[in-house]
Amino acid sequence: MATLLIAEHNGTELAPATLSALTAAQQIGSDVTVLVAGADVKAVADAVAQCAGVSKVLLAEGDSLAHDLAENLSELVMSMASDYSHIMAPANSVSKDTMPRVAALLDVGQLSDITAVLSGDQFQRPIYAGNAIATVTSKDATKVITVRAAAFDKVATTGGSATVESIAAPEANSHSSWVSDELSKSERPELTAAERIVSGGRGVGSAENFALVEALADKLGAAVGASRAAVDSGFVANDLQVGQTGKIVAPSLYMAFGISGAIQHLAGMKDSKVIVAVNKDEDAPIFQVADYGLVGDLFEVLPEMTEKL
């Protein structure tokens, strides 16, 4: 039996998380078919076909798939589910919405956010906000899985030559419909795809002061992140939140300014390659995970770094 992987994309480009999930899918050991679903996503399907280790690409295009409605997308996945032993997707807001629906329709359990593939039916996943790692075995015939992208290396975007096969989109369901999107317009890289992230916490103090964080991020070509405390205080929007209840990231460089290092925040960034922490409290827990710590006032450190880089 083969593995089906649902690609993540923004309508025009393949998201890097898909490349990480492909690594996990290939570790299962079967042929990997990638499903690309959306309104007008031929370019994404062509990009997937080039990726290393992809056997086949299924392209489903239609208005019913334009806004990722779980009711329609799960219908599409169900139409082909019987051909696969494993149905996987990188964990993101679309797959988290859709995959449990697929699992319930198949009357199987779902494995959320796996961080390791031990065999075709045994996996590891974090529980308790990453404070414990569970090893679990699926007893179902079909395994429905979301993959924590940060835990897997990315496959090469070249070297593959899979065929792209078009399939029909499902009818739109009559119970749910899309109304509007309010997407953050930013020139900065996506948090989960960024190689560098500059994050601010409660210590930043206000929405206006976040400009200091943004200035350094722009100098480094980095994404801007925030702790839950900064989001709860209204400094920035929730989609910038790094942590167990926000985005899980693992960039090459993660810089935390005015972030104390609550467990739930650490769960979202502790797999970063290099962590820098700047905090005026020398006992802040963030220093226990930081490769480089600087005890100091972020209002002095941020402008100085921005200027000197």
Partner: peptide, 27 residues
């Protein structure tokens, strides 16, 4: 039962690194 819990372990601890004294040293 769909998913069997085999084992629960503490995550690998990340080691803290060094403290630096200035922005110049950090850079």
């Amino acid at each position: 039962q769909h998913i069997q819990l085999d084992k629960v372990e503490a995550p690998a601890a990340r080691q803290g690194g060094v403290k630096v004294g200035s922005v110049d040293e950090l850079i």
